[in-house]
């Protein structure tokens, strides 16, 4: 029995961080905004880690899944706004649609792009992201480049007070729940055959095949899981917090890059890494914006270069080595 429980120890530090963040945000005045941002980055890191960290494939178009998730929520709200008895159910419908759309897109992209490897895959995913954005703008899908604005729809259907609470508080709580869920799924994958298969294919795809691993299947599993979480994050954080969606914003490659930085900074393929990465990235971005506004990137770029050249395993990689044979090792993966 104890052995069974030990398997779940690594979730303890992750959940501790999330619970602490929640209480700090709730009880320290003026902190909720920062906490919300940290939760967003942790969630983003955890979600992307399931694909990037576990498979080693670089998806430069990851933000596209957040984009379609945002559209999913936006479409549900704008199209169903006339049905007043739906109430808060409209949000549920929005998440369902976001999930459906990100699943469909990840199936389509996965079937096409996951046949490619390395640089070809990375370039193809950039193509998917940009192509989708310009298709929406060019063919005027979902209102094209004018985007969808649904503040009034939310206010109408939920009432102004509920809508405000949703935008300023509950949306962030949803992000927290999504982040926690992503952590559970990550650990479940790591402890199951899926995780072993992904590690094997990340390290040597051809050898993995010869060992009996259906690499395509496991890549697709990781890809869809990761993309679905991205869709949910988009729906919760982008659509509900800021009730409008414009194609150039939700397909902005910058977010993919932020996600990559978080995963690498913390330690790719680890459970705790993306959380550590999200916290450090979020906090430094926040305070750099306060103290040296406009120069965050100028400071970030060299830091990234240094981290990658000198500490390729990320923070968790270093911690793991340090605590390898101690009792703490059970908590750190």
């Amino acid at each position: 029995m104890k052995k069974k429980l030990i398997k779940f120890y690594p979730l303890i530090p992750v959940f501790t961080v999330y619970i602490l963040l929640f209480f700090i945000g709730k009880n320290v005045p003026g902190m909720w905004q920062l906490v919300a941002m940290l939760l967003f980055y942790c969630a983003l890191g955890q979600a992307f880690n399931i694909f990037l960290g576990m498979t080693g494939y670089v998806d430069f178009g990851y933000v596209a899944f957040m984009g379609v998730g945002t559209y999913g929520m936006a479409l549900a709200i704008t199209r169903l706004a006339s049905i007043e008895e739906l109430g808060i159910g409209i949000i549920v419908a929005g998440f369902a649609l976001a999930l459906l759309m990100s699943t469909l897109l990840s199936l389509a992209v996965g079937a096409v792009a996951l046949r490619l490897r390395g640089a070809y895959f990375a370039i193809a995913t950039i193509g998917v992201n940009e192509g989708l954005r310009f298709l929406i703008e060019g063919a005027r899908i979902w209102n094209g480049s004018e985007g969808l604005i649904f503040v009034s729809d939310i206010n109408n259907i939920l009432g102004r007070d509920t809508a405000d609470a949703l935008m300023t508080f509950w949306a962030d709580v949803m992000v927290l729940v999504i982040a926690a869920l992503a952590a559970v799924v990550t650990l479940y994958y790591m402890r199951s055959k899926i995780g072993y298969a992904l590690t094997a294919l990340r390290e040597d795809e051809d050898a993995a095949k010869v060992m009996g691993i259906n690499v395509t299947k496991y890549k697709i599993i990781a890809f869809i899981t990761s993309s679905c979480f991205a869709g949910l994050i988009g729906a919760a954080s982008w659509a509900l917090k800021t009730p409008y969606v414009f194609p150039p914003e939700v397909f902005e490659i910058q977010y993919t890059i932020e996600a990559i930085i978080i995963v690498l900074l913390g330690g790719a393929g680890t459970l705790l890494g993306p959380v550590a990465g999200g916290l450090i990235y979020g906090i430094s971005k926040y305070y750099l914006a306060v103290y040296v506004p406009g120069f965050q990137l100028l400071i970030f770029a060299p830091i990234i270069i240094v981290i990658i050249t000198l500490f390729p395993e990320g923070i968790l990689g270093m911690l793991k080595n340090r605590f390898q044979n101690t009792g703490l090792a059970h908590f750190i993966i």
Partner: peptide, 21 residues
């Protein structure tokens, strides 16, 4: 000999660095 990810990210950072400078 680093994984692809590392070089992709480093060259991307070069770009950001140049833009910001």
């Amino acid at each position: 000999n680093a994984p692809e990810l590392a070089t992709l990210l480093v060259t991307f950072s070069f770009g950001i660095l140049l833009e910001e400078v």
